[in-house]
Simulated scan of single mutants.
Amino acid sequence: MARSGSGSRIAALSVAGVLAGTVLVGCGDGGSDSDTAGSAKKASASGGPGAREEGTRAVRSAYDRTAEEDTARVTLKVRTSAQGDSVTADGKGTVDLEDGDSVMTVTAEGQRMEQRVVDQVLYQKPPAGQAPGGKPWIKIDLEKVAARQGAGGQTMNDPARSAALAKAVDDKDVTEKGTAEVGGVRTTRYRVVVDVAELPDGRKLSEQVGPTLPMDLWLDDEGRIRRQQVDMTVKAAPAARGESRAGASSGPRQVTVRTVLEFTDFGVDVDADAPPARQVTDMTDEAARQGGVRS
């Protein structure tokens, strides 16, 4: 597949989508009930008036229960579309469910890239000869980028704040959608709608992703997340001069991102180490200007 100007920018945004999705697990919101998962199943099966409330409790406690496992193996698929072009990125690796450190291999448009997140700094190793600066690795400080783009972006990128997503869900926003096997494990699927206004700096964030954020969660018998699907429609910056196709609008673009993650092998080792500084080119400023992550 040839890389057009817009296609290249979509590939960059797909990596940003990977990051946005992976940190949604993060750390929990505290005070989980050890009987929540079981009581939710009983209420749903009986069709009683407490079914929706129990489903909400199961969703909220899932973030705690998953984070309590400390680490997991993760696979993901991110489909990013804009202006008639789309890119699918596939990844696999390991993630620290509490602080967000991760080691992954991401493949998009037939090219493979190594990616690490260490202490909220993203390191990427593009295919040989494609990294700027003549060094094998690039780095982007996610906290600095988030600070320049507003606190709303930091909510999406900071695992320590990701529990706010669960807190922004109430009874009317959770619907049980049946059961399914995920990686050979029986799960219960929940459709969740997050009220963006309830998130930190929600007004700013809603300008980027709209008033609500739809998610689907598949929880196992212990209430842990086995699969998570997030759909976002993001208002992206206009294409740079010369990159937009004939007839394309030069105004803000609508970029849709679907991120699907699956978690297995809880407790696996995660060796997320920063590469040597002499091998790294800092691209934080450029990432902040573009509003995305280069690939």
Rank of each mutant, 00 (worst) to 15 (best):
A2F: 09
A2P: 14
R3W: 14
S4V: 13
G7L: 14
A12F: 06
G17K: 03
V18D: 00
G21T: 05
G21F: 00
V25K: 00
G31N: 10
S32R: 04
S32T: 00
S34F: 06
S39H: 02
K41W: 11
A45V: 13
S46Y: 01
G55A: 03
A58Q: 12
R60F: 03
R60P: 02
R65A: 07
T66F: 07
E68M: 01
D70G: 00
T71S: 09
L76S: 13
K77C: 06
R79Q: 12
T80L: 14
V87L: 13
V95F: 04
V106N: 07
G110Y: 12
R112M: 12
R112H: 00
E114C: 01
V118Y: 08
Q124I: 15
Q124C: 10
A128Q: 08
A128F: 08
G129W: 13
Q130G: 01
P132F: 08
P132C: 10
G134M: 02
K139Q: 12
K139T: 11
P159R: 12
R161E: 15
A164L: 05
A164C: 04
D170R: 07
D171R: 06
K177P: 07
A180I: 02
E181T: 04
G184R: 01
V194P: 13
E198R: 15
L199M: 14
P200M: 09
P200C: 05
L205Y: 05
S206I: 06
G210D: 06
P211C: 03
M215F: 11
W218Q: 04
L219I: 05
L219E: 10
L219Y: 08
G223D: 10
M232R: 08
M232K: 11
K235D: 08
A239M: 07
A239F: 11
A240N: 10
R241A: 13
G247V: 12
G247N: 06
S249H: 03
T256P: 03
R258S: 13
G267V: 15
V268L: 04
V270P: 11
V270S: 05
P276T: 07
A277I: 10
A277H: 03
R278A: 15
R278L: 04
Q279V: 04
Q279S: 14
T281P: 03
T281C: 02
E286M: 01
G291N: 09
G292R: 12
R294P: 11
